[in-house]
């Protein structure tokens, strides 16, 4: 516990001093929320929809922050520590790989939660937003999406042999999800072919899940996204521990 507390406190300070994670994990979503609100505020999600564009976009904007922290911030921090032999120093101490992964996980979770709170405030204060669905239902969906996206990030960090590959893999995972999973361009207005392609991306299902929860839509169609998220999380966490490399 002492190890966790100290590592967590220090890594959080380092993350704040570095700013990158805050800019991409929080700032980006907030700016995006403001711009989108100014352009689309008040319009329906699509023709005939009984909820507004802003209402349906909430989960998607939050997902931008989840992707940035989970698929960029988290794996790149770990890959960088390995590249600069900081993990090698940890290797000759009693600390476990699980602890190091957990600390990075929680530090990035903190950034995501900050993103959630600020985006929510922007929506409520400027764009007259109120969550239709229950927050108690949204929160578990949100945490499940975090768990599965972060575990993909940890797995990427573990399997990349060096920082270049890590960079490449993170971009290869993050940017398609950024453009095609409905974070920026809503899934509902995508052509059917693009929707099918988009369905390959895990974040698409995460956004569907958060969207349904935030809009208060019935959850019975959500069994597949939920199971997928859980399966991904279990698989990727196991892989990230199995292939964890100190050097």
């Amino acid at each position: 516990m002492k190890t966790f507390k100290t590592l967590f406190a220090t890594e959080t300070k380092l993350m704040i001093r570095d700013m990158n994670n805050l800019i991409f994990g929080v700032g980006f979503s907030v700016v995006f929320a403001i711009i989108m609100g100014m352009v689309m505020g008040g319009k329906p999600a699509f023709e005939g929809a009984d909820y507004s564009f802003m209402e349906q976009s909430f989960g998607a904007v939050i997902a931008i922050g989840i992707g940035a922290t989970g698929l960029m911030g988290l794996p790149l921090a770990l890959a960088d520590y390995r590249h600069r032999k900081i993990l090698k120093r940890f290797l000759v101490t009693p600390v476990s790989p699980g602890m190091l992964l957990l600390v990075q996980f929680i530090v990035n979770l903190l950034v995501s939660v900050l993103c959630l709170v600020l985006v929510y405030l922007v929506y409520v204060l400027f764009f007259d937003y109120g969550m239709r669905g229950s927050f108690l239902r949204f929160l578990p969906s949100y945490l499940l999406v975090i768990l599965s996206i972060y575990s993909i990030g940890m797995m990427l960090a573990s399997i990349s042999p060096n920082i270049k590959t890590a960079n490449l893999l993170c971009c290869a995972f993050y940017f398609p999800m950024f453009f095609f999973s409905g974070t920026t361009l809503p899934y509902e207005i995508m052509p059917a072919a693009l929707q099918r392609a988009s369905d390959i991306l895990p974040l698409t299902h995460g956004i569907k899940l958060m969207k349904a929860a935030s809009l208060g839509l019935p959850m019975e169609h959500m069994t597949f996204p939920v199971l997928l998220m859980i399966a991904l999380a279990v698989l990727c966490i196991l892989l990230s521990l199995r292939f964890f490399r100190w050097e």
Binding site: R17, R89, V92
Partner: peptide
């Protein structure tokens, strides 16, 4: 263990690296 070349986290202070190291034992 003291390695020949030791690298530290970016922007970490002396007291912080000491605290972190001490917390591991």
């Amino acid at each position: 263990v003291q390695f020949q070349q030791t690298n530290y986290q970016d922007k970490i202070r002396v007291d912080e690296i000491c605290q972190v190291t001490a917390s591991l034992y």
